[in-house]
Write a protein that binds this DNA or RNA. Sequence first.
DNA 1: CTGAAAGCGCTAACAA
DNA 2: TTGTTAGCGCTTTCAG
Lengths: 342, 342
Amino acid sequence: MAKDPVPRRTLTLRDVSEASGVSEMTVSRVLRSRGDVSVSTRERVLEAARALGYVPNKIAGALASQRVNLVAVIIPSLSNMVFPEVMTGISDVLEDTGLQPVVGVTNYSPEREEKVLYEMLSWRPSGVIIAGLEHTPAARAMLQNAGIPIVEVMDIDGTPVDSAVGISHFRAGRHMAAAIVAAGYRRIGFLGTMMPHDHRARKRLEGFEEELAKSGLEVQDREFYSGGSQLLKGREMTEAILTRSPDLDFLYYSNDMIAAGGLLYCLHHGIDVPGKLGLAGFNGVELLEGLPCRLATMDACRHEIGRRAAEIIAGQHEAGATGGIITELEPKLQPGDTIRST
Amino acid sequence: MAKDPVPRRTLTLRDVSEASGVSEMTVSRVLRSRGDVSVSTRERVLEAARALGYVPNKIAGALASQRVNLVAVIIPSLSNMVFPEVMTGISDVLEDTGLQPVVGVTNYSPEREEKVLYEMLSWRPSGVIIAGLEHTPAARAMLQNAGIPIVEVMDIDGTPVDSAVGISHFRAGRHMAAAIVAAGYRRIGFLGTMMPHDHRARKRLEGFEEELAKSGLEVQDREFYSGGSQLLKGREMTEAILTRSPDLDFLYYSNDMIAAGGLLYCLHHGIDVPGKLGLAGFNGVELLEGLPCRLATMDACRHEIGRRAAEIIAGQHEAGATGGIITELEPKLQPGDTIRST
DNA sequence: CTGAAAGCGCTAACAA
DNA sequence: TTGTTAGCGCTTTCAG
């Protein structure tokens, strides 16, 4: 395969202009479909551009027009099942708006979040979608001063910088606790991933405990783990907590993956679920549908959150600043087969 | 909360220059830590920048310097478990190179891939990492003419545009077939996700069938599905194929998620695995570690692929074009507990 | 060590 | 409908 004499310099509008005998300005108009251009010149330009293999330089375009069709999306993790779904919601909506999502990952580190945010803002995006309401003071300041629509997603228990779309994790925890108590469970254990910066899991637990307290109950035992396969950790933690506190009659997990691990453990060991032991997770991940038994969980509305957030960005991009839209979604409790029916 | 008189115009170098009484040029030098600047002026500048909340405009910087520290990463999907791991490998390496990955998702559509690629190239990234060797002619042309390092990842059965890092899926299929035949299985079924553009799954099946043919065997029955929860599809497909062809003694799945679904189905129904029925998947996903029984699979070296690809990009970014580095990784067969030991 | 001039490749705003 | 003229905000280059 003989290689063409590769153009060492990347092509510019000027090249297309010369090749087509049309002014740079008109070439630009054709390539952006802006303004009126006669059919004949349009075709001449398009053909020249295609023949040359011209790819416009958005950097120059953005600088000149002061417009960047990028939306910064900042999330804690990609390997969490949860965020890819939010991303899907965002992409679905942005698809037909001319806006493009650009993802940054923080690994649940506030410092990293600050850095990623700075990095992304320096590209002057048209908007920011960022997970959570907790940020470093510097990050908050950047968001505030960016002068573009900001949507904080997933959580609404707190004060957003601008707009927010999410659920109340605090109330989600309460809601689950109420359901568990109503079903007659009394000796309840909690199993979570050890993540100091997972504020949403923390809020769920807080709400959970507060609701238990109303019935004079409290969490009897807890188990935390970090790192590794969540499903496996779920098994191991379940074994550990049941060995230590064999009289527990309910296990509340901070997410569905570890809960699924626990469920598999219980099924494997012939533990009577939900009779002797009830189980519940959180998130409503697709994975659960494949399990032998439907785990109790709460849908976190991830796809919807992504959609709504993108709609806010797109809307304000169109219409100019509006700001401060707060959307609370209602997570649905899915009792499944792992809580006794009342 | 009273809002500050928000600066409606975003800050420029000039603002920092005026605030600090230092020329724009020197401010620029300080902010990029380039060239020698006296400690006193440096501090003055830094303080002014911080006080104002200045965020540099990378668009202008990139245009002026003709340098963009972005690496385009183009993958089929985020919800696949597989690609996030590749991403992690990429991020790990890029972290300390000053390069930043930017993700584009194609949903396994060649047309979308072409569009995403065009979009990303128009930001003049320093390199491209793209999944697979199969692209539209236009996409190939763009890659060829981009004049930047290109690394095609995951697969090496074909002709790369520039560099490539991956495994031979064809040989992976052969390898698995050989192990299955050696273990004495003879009536083999295949279960896959229906994806015309998943070339890697296709190549695995081709290699698998070719190896079976050497022993005079062929795939007895097949089952395809698309969409939905992979774990659930795995269960359903397994039930379907076993109902239709109850005499099968091995099921080869195109990925671990559907295989895991099949495994759970078998365990649930008390099918003797691996005695009466053997099972195998592909990928070596972390999830498997949490299952009650270790599924036979092959590790696709995803993290390592990401690392190597990023190293190639970073290396060429440093040293100038080298090009055409092909790295083949060797996937390891993990027999687990779902193939009889020979 | 610091500054002034020129221009990166494109588009807004006019003019023709 | 088409072309011309100025920049966008920064960095390169070269001069002090």
